[in-house]
Design a protein around this nucleic acid. Structure first.
Lengths: 140, 140
DNA sequence: TTTGAAAATTGGCCTAA
DNA sequence: TTAGGCCAATTTTCAAA
């Protein structure tokens, strides 16, 4: 990890499809150098992958909620792992603060969110409290 | 937006660098069809962009915090916009729930997080309360 | 670092539904 | 009018020298 690696990452964080050639042009180096650095960073897990960013509302997911889950301490990890298995649950973090588990959940509308939270996820053993915060807008 | 578009999106959400050719092979269709659909979805803003996913800890950002901000109602939007300007603030959402503004903030260590939150961001006019939750692990 | 072949991208033009 | 087939030119990728 040097200066050059860092610059490559900055570029790829903004545009994950930028070609090796273009990156090389920006850094004033060779395509080979850039490619080998990226390959290495992928292998080392520095670059975990590449994702297309989708606008959920434009494909019918009009309700996205940051949702905290509180659990009994002993069920904490099993609940977190279980949450990962659901397609609707796009992100799962364990964290300090108000809630031990934080998630991002996509739903088509409020009714569907309610079903996901309270019918599907609410049945997971060990959950004591569900705290949804509906996202109004993603500014960044 | 039909079935085929949806399948393309699912693939690109998992691997944003997959080539048109490969996607076409998976869907058993032509490269042209895939390419034109992706172009259209990019133009319509369904696909907002492509991003490399970086492991923050592996590049020295050992402390990532989901941080809620409370503001006076009249300063709400200006604070949210201001937060977007900081390099350390990777994501900004406005939301219902406990906090009107939620963010994801990267720092090298606890000391740096403290400086970012209370020296830099804390000075933004209108902020009433800062509620950081340090991420222990991103499971999904 | 350079070189060259294979693969992917891109644009234009065309047809069919 | 739109989705997609076809072809040709260019660019990118990737491995070997």
């Amino acid at each position: 990890m040097d200066e050059k690696d860092m610059k490559i990452l900055e570029i790829l964080m903004k545009d994950g499809r930028k070609s090796y050639t273009e990156i090389a042009k920006i850094l004033e180096t060779s395509e080979t150098s850039v490619r080998k650095r990226i390959k290495r960073m992928e292998e080392e897990g520095i670059i975990k992958g590449y994702k297309a960013e989708i606008d959920p509302a434009k494909i019918g997911y009009n309700v996205v909620a940051l949702t905290g889950f509180d659990t009994n301490p002993e069920d904490f990890l099993s609940v977190a792992r279980k949450l990962c298995e659901f397609e609707e649950v796009k992100k799962v973090w364990t964290s300090t603060g108000d809630h031990m588990i934080m998630t991002e959940i996509w739903a088509r509308d409020g009714k569907e969110l309610s079903e996901i939270l309270f019918d599907k996820l609410g049945k997971i053993k060990g959950i004591k409290k569900i705290c949804p915060a509906i996202i109004l807008e993603q500014l960044k």
